[in-house]
Design a protein around this nucleic acid. Structure first.
Length: 300
DNA sequence: TACCAGGAGAGCG
DNA sequence: CGCTCTCATGGT
């Protein structure tokens, strides 16, 4: 690397919808700020702004090697090839058209796992609050620009392992508190090695995550897709369930096994990306003030 | 106010 | 399996 040390950089990024990506419910630490976004990646406070053909990034502390950020943003992912791998059916066309440039991030596995354990039966707004609360209470303070409010890293497993269920309940975790505590202890004592997951076959990585209490199919797939680089992982939540039902099955989902077979065969090797497009597409059509979805184009 | 939220686990037939 | 109930809490 011959890059100079500085606190600003422009990352080339074509077909990258920054706002859609940061706000699409895969990460919970980003807040829109004027025409930009502020958040935390690992131990660093980060400011990001979409510009034509690129993303401008600023940090509070000068940086020499920015690969941690390009890795997080996945700006080098083969966007065109990913889109071409999707099935050429009407629902996918409509989903892509509705959110061009939507990407998947590559998050830290622990932060991703902990955040999604906290997510069950919560709205995205609330998940953000819980994560913010965990960081403020148990995360290490990190440098921010002069005059900016304080920021905190996501607390590592060894830190959360030292808390109690009652502590965690104070962060609005409710019945998820014991799950998060158990997960923190399991990762802290080495019984689950998150760093080893990406090198495993998808099924094995998934099986290891499923051993954690509070981690079922959906949360395991979120971690595999958003943090471990398994582009074939396909989290099925209420929104994706709705999307699949309405767009592919005339409103009625088939039995589990048949649905699983459909997912495994229909969406191709980048099924996880397809899932994210369906998720965002379906949420765009929800009615404000109601959890019931509006009317996405009925196709097929 | 009533409903429901990017679920998971246990108990049941 | 597949269904139902419970869990805790706040947004809308």
């Amino acid at each position: 690397m011959n890059a100079a040390t500085c606190n600003e950089i422009c990352i080339p990024a074509r077909n990258y919808a920054l706002a859609a990506t940061l706000g699409s419910g895969q990460a919970f630490r980003w807040t829109p700020c004027d025409d930009a976004w502020e958040g935390v990646v690992g131990p660093r406070w980060v400011w990001l702004r979409q510009e034509p053909g690129r993303i401008r990034a600023r940090t509070a502390v000068p940086v020499t090697d920015w690969r941690w950020l390009t890795h997080y943003l996945q700006t080098d992912a083969p966007y065109g090839a990913i889109l071409r791998s999707f099935p050429r059916d009407a629902p996918m066309r409509a989903s892509v058209a509705a959110c061009r440039g939507l990407r998947l991030l590559r998050q830290d596995p622990w932060e991703c796992l902990a955040s999604f354990i906290a997510s069950s039966t919560k709205q995205i707004v609330q998940i953000r609050q819980i994560v913010a609360s965990l960081c403020a209470r148990y995360g290490a303070p990190i440098p921010t620009p002069p005059g900016h409010q304080p920021a905190f890293a996501f607390p590592p497993p060894q830190r959360l392992a030292q808390t109690t269920e009652a502590d965690l309940r104070r962060c609005q975790l409710g019945f998820r508190a014991p799950y998060l505590l158990a997960a923190a202890r399991t990762v802290d004592n080495g019984a689950l090695d998150l760093a080893a997951l990406p090198a495993l076959p998808l099924a094995e990585a998934r099986a290891r995550l499923l051993r954690l209490p509070g981690v079922g199919d959906k949360i395991a797939d979120c971690v595999l897709l958003f943090a471990c680089g398994f582009a074939g992982a396909f989290p099925v939540d209420v929104w994706v369930r709705r999307a699949l039902a309405r767009l592919y099955f005339r409103g009625r989902l088939p039995a589990r096994a048949r649905l699983a077979r459909f997912i495994a065969t229909h969406f191709g090797p980048q099924a996880g990306y397809a899932q994210q497009y369906l998720f965002v597409y379906m949420r765009q059509h929800r009615r404000p003030g109601s959890s019931r979805a509006g009317r996405p184009v009925q196709t097929r």
